[in-house]
Design a protein around this nucleic acid. Sequence first.
RNA 1: GUCCCCAUCGUCUAGCCAGGUCUAGGACAUCUCCCUUUCACGGAGAAAACAGGGGUUCGAAUCCCCUUGGGGACGCCA
Length: 480
Amino acid sequence: MSVRTRFAPSPTGYLHIGSVRTALYAWALAKKNNGSFILRIEDTDRERYVPNSIKFIIQELNWLGLQPTEGPSKSELIQVGEDIEGLSLEWSSHGGPYIQSLRKDFYKRYAEELLQAGFAYRCECTPEMLEKERREQILAGKRPGYSGRCRYINVSPEKPYAIRLKLPQNFSVTANDEIRGKLKFENPPLSDPVLLKSDGFPTYHLAVVVDDHLMKITHVLRGEEWISTFPIHWYLYDLFGWEKPKFLHLPVILGEDGKKLSKRHGAQTTAELREEGFLPSAIINALALIGWTHSSGLEIFSVDEFLRDFSLEKVHSASGMFSPIKLKRINHEHFKLMRVDEFLALIQKNLGLSLRLSESYVNVLKERTHTLKDLSQLLCFLIFPNEYDFQALEDIDKQLIISTLELFKKTVNENLSRDELQAQISAISDSINLPKKHVFKILRVAILRRMETPPLIDTIQEFGFNWTIDQINRFLSEFR
RNA sequence: GUCCCCAUCGUCUAGCCAGGUCUAGGACAUCUCCCUUUCACGGAGAAAACAGGGGUUCGAAUCCCCUUGGGGACGCCA
């Protein structure tokens, strides 16, 4: 039987890195086994739905390279009101619909089935009543939970109602998790959960079981926040008499303070990471490493290398922290692994600069690049021509700066080698009695705009004598 | 409150399942030194952990139990 995994996000407007890690493992498992990776949209809560976020999710997965093999069709997206401008969907949509709000008939059918069989009941309690009940329970120091009021009364199907699952007395379940082994739940603090809401939408518990079954999912990978309601899902499979998939509850990813990731931890969505200048391959590398290790101990790897070695056995059960510092480091290593043409293409795409640079100069740049932002800073002399860091020169006499530059223009020419250029600068330093350090500083700011730059001599050699003189003249006209 | 999950350097982890090769290895971060015209890279080195207590055993980081600590869940959210 072929492996089928799925990624089932809610369209809430962003893609959290915790979800991305779950998606990554699910994608890898399917890909490795030549199976299918299904994108299913869990939009059963209309209040949390953010328009066009399905499109956004698709674009983000695409950017990260986690391509589904099955997912919603364009017409499904249109039906739920998503903008499909510029989207090309390269996957099969034959087992759909893949958007849960378009699958309401399925859920209704199975909920009714349980109702008929006496495993579920109609509930007429309103949200207000439930809220009041909950408040009182908490006030009385009791465990909050549905009292089961409608369980024994016959609620008329004429009025609005929800369908609740009737949990057995002394509800105890032993469920199996692939990375934790047997999970025993004895009288878990669960009360009869709603399966079908009064608006006709299913809750997660019904939808996930029905869809995973109907879509023939073989491995359910999800966050460990689902462990507590795992007994409900396990029980539903038993009631329906369906074969269970394998379940893998992945540990959560925490922020640096050991708390669940939230806004104050900085970048934690794919969009934020992209803006900070991180590469998809580095994000995948970093995320893969939280809760999994390469069998050879490799710590910097490409997506292909990850895929080749990925296995469920190496996935941990303990949660881990996300470290932006480590991501930065990994990102740097990924820059270093890039070929020259790849690197230049990246500059072209992200900075809009079409450059032809020597391999050695590209290496000089790569060494100094941790994120794309660094790159734009390094190359600011090409991007923002008139933004000079005049402050850096404040401690040097203005006339001296001008005469240094004039002297440099006179004594330097196209034919000078690296060493000769170096010697020439030393000579200038001697002749006007200015420390070499200062001469370099002046040249650096004049030619490259600021103090944090690629090596001066290399840059002059790379871009040429005429360019250099041009830069200096430009500086002088601003400076004088 | 109830139920569940987790536990090796600051962090990610190797080792654990199949106890001895562990005076616990690596990487990131930190500190020191070297390299250096800037910013970086790089090189050498240092400091840094088996949460605690009981068992089992000739022998425990590894197996069992308890405690502690951290996390999650208890919604007509997912």
